[in-house]
């Protein structure tokens, strides 16, 4: 078990390091001058200014050295010079070109919004999906079952952001059921936070739950055919207990895997939701940073954080297995 976790941790770390190197290499090895966006930012860019910035940003240095400096900033404070000198506390991900603030601070400011959307939506679709799947499996072959399968196929086929847009049009603009759909920090009160994010959650929950319902249904149908379920039913265990306690425990493992693997998808979904519902989270921040002129420190930070979140989610899922399913023995 410990050996397995160590091995998984190492490969997870490898993915994160490679991701950061990839973004770094992309930016610095490309034909464009990395100092250019910064140079264009305030006032006209003349050759002297460009040369100075190139020198200050260390672009004349080798890319390996620069990566070393950047990576070292993660554990110790750094001084960053472009124009004025900026002090950047560890963990330092750089100074934003556009706001001139520390990227780490801005990251932590925006993290709660994204996490609120993702966790609320994720929890909602997992619960709705699993319950629907169990119900469909229990009434296999009926109208409920067939309707669910068909609906899941249709909803799965339409891009997520189209569903979100249509929901926004009707529920927010046309009918005004959710007039104030945006993110309010939870410190302003649970009420505004909850009502502000309810529509994005519902959109996420509604669109994704069908896939989970389909998977849960498939797994449950298989599990319900097993002998131990017949035994439990024969000895007089209540139907609901058989379904949710005996069968679901065995059927839910692949669904949890899917949930872990879907985390990347969930994050992308969050980017679209933040854009459509004007939530100031990490996704929207990244999109802003990617517009011309590119705010490289912000881009690298968001990609890195995204990679870490996904990798950690996959890791947790793998380890979670051994607890939820006694058949899995990690060696």
């Amino acid at each position: 078990m410990a050996g397995y976790i160590v091995r998984r941790l190492l490969s997870a770390a490898l993915v994160v390091v490679l991701t950061s190197m990839f973004v770094f290499a992309l930016f610095f090895l490309g034909p464009a001058n990395a100092a250019r966006p910064l140079c264009d930012l305030n006032g006209r860019c003349n050759p002297e200014k460009l040369a100075l910035l190139t020198e200050q940003l260390g672009l004349n240095d080798s890319v390996v050295n620069q990566y070393g400096i950047w990576a070292k900033g993660l554990v110790s404070d750094r001084e960053i010079v472009f124009g004025p000198t900026f002090h950047c506390d560890a963990p330092c991900l750089g100074i934003s070109y556009s706001t001139r603030g520390e990227v780490t601070t801005e990251l932590f400011d925006r993290f709660p919004a994204t996490i609120s959307v993702a966790i609320g939506g994720g929890a909602l679709y997992l619960v709705i999906g699993v319950v629907l799947g169990v119900v469909a499996a229990a009434r296999r072959g009926t109208v409920v079952d067939r309707g669910l399968v068909a609906a899941s196929l249709v909803i799965y086929s339409i891009p997520f952001y189209v569903v979100a847009l249509v929901a926004w049009i009707f529920f927010s603009l046309e009918w005004g059921i959710f007039p104030d759909t945006t993110y309010h920090p939870i410190s302003e009160g649970v009420g505004p936070w909850f009502w502000g994010l309810l529509l994005p959650w519902l959109v996420l929950g509604f669109t994704n739950s069908t896939t989970y319902a389909r998977y849960t249904r498939g797994q449950m149908v298989e599990t319900l055919g097993e002998d131990y379920i017949r035994t439990a039913t024969a000895k007089g265990v209540r139907r609901s207990k058989v379904l949710f306690k005996h069968a679901l425990r065995a059927a839910i493992v692949p669904v949890i895997t899917l949930f872990g693997l879907d985390f990347a998808y969930l994050l992308t979904g969050t980017i679209f939701l933040e854009q459509i519902f004007q939530i100031d989270g990490i996704g929207r921040w990244a999109i802003e940073a990617l517009r011309d002129p590119i705010d490289f420190p912000v881009v690298s930070a968001t990609v890195l954080v995204g990679a870490i979140v996904i990798v950690v989610a996959n890791l947790l899922v793998d380890i979670f297995y051994s607890f939820i399913d006694p058949r899995v023995r990690l060696a």
Partner: peptide
């Protein structure tokens, strides 16, 4: 295992 959608988002404008 790469977060490909994030990479796609970052790659497009940089290229």
């Amino acid at each position: 295992s790469f977060p490909s959608l994030l990479a796609m988002l970052a790659l497009a404008p940089i290229i």
